[in-house]
Design a protein around this nucleic acid. Structure first.
Ligand SMILES: [Mn+2]
Ligand SMILES: [Mn+2]
Ligand SMILES: [Zn+2]
Ligand SMILES: [Zn+2]
Lengths: 138, 138
DNA sequence: AGATTGACTTAGACAAAGTCCAGTGTAGGG
DNA sequence: CCCTACACTGGACTTTGTCTAAGTCAATCT
């Protein structure tokens, strides 16, 4: 995720300890943390970081297209650093765990003109729901 | 929507003025109101109805499968009375208006076993995003 | 019809998620 | 090493949703 920091520097971002820490927390695969989870993990690395800064930084990253907002459950938004490979989500209805998935086919092509109501459709988001192996055996 | 009231009576519900008003507010096609919008419209018909009752009633309708919860934006949940014909949603990214759509094909079949991570997948939710004709011409 | 009763409703306190702002601190260019 | 525009902080505030104690009333019974 240090290439992210490079890109941000290239965009004229001031490199602060807070922004570095938020970027660190977001590293990895299948990462879909809430803002408060990001804050909690950031505090572990930099105790004085404030909630407002975490919200600001996440919001900026979303605006720049470096992070996606996902709302799989009906509670807090989740922040997804996997913004450069298009994908969808598979969510456990019981424990809420989330995996990135790459379905075949193009759901966009499945929406006929007669069902578009004059909209210019630009994007589609697919959420699969089920029970994860862990919850299934319990 | 009076068949809804019938079904509720059949399930042993007490028929109160509040529940009747909430059912009335939910009548129609392409209706996807937030709880507060339902409350505002209910108050117009029955001024003393409380927020708690609207939330309770909506929750009960969801539990009974008579109304669906939808979260197309990342803000408040929306309540969808079209629970008996499966469908997906087309959302205007600018004004937030929502239409029910019926895509062809079955997105569930597009998720190969290798992308299921051992989950038992039971449901899929598709949200199309774009710009509605109204916002396009402005 | 009148009495009864438990389901229903209410107002308001509370909680969680997110926004906003005034004051303070600091990254990075000169 | 100074400056200053940008960034950060803490706390107040808003929105969305939940909970509870006390009061009300729909449906049933007599
Ligand atoms: Mn993802
Ligand atoms: Mn709908
Ligand atoms: Zn699970
Ligand atoms: Zn629109």
């Amino acid at each position: 995720m240090s290439d992210l920091l490079e890109r941000l520097r290239g965009r004229g971002w001031r490199m602060t300890a807070q922004r570095r820490v938020v970027a660190e927390v977001l590293a990895g695969d299948h990462v879909h943390l809430t803002a408060d989870e990001v804050h909690a993990r950031a505090v572990a690395k930099l105790p004085e970081i404030s909630r407002a800064t975490v919200y600001n930084t996440l919001g900026e990253l979303v605006t720049l297209g470096e992070v996606l907002e996902v709302s799989t459950d009906k509670r807090a938004k989740r922040y997804d650093p996997n913004a450069h490979r298009p994908h969808h989500h598979l969510v456990c209805a019981q424990c809420g765990s989330i995996r990135d998935v790459h379905p075949t086919g193009n759901p966009m092509a499945d929406l006929p003109d007669s069902e578009r109501f004059g909209f210019t459709v630009s994007d589609v988001e697919v959420t699969y729901r089920g029970v994860c192996p862990n919850c299934a055996k319990a």
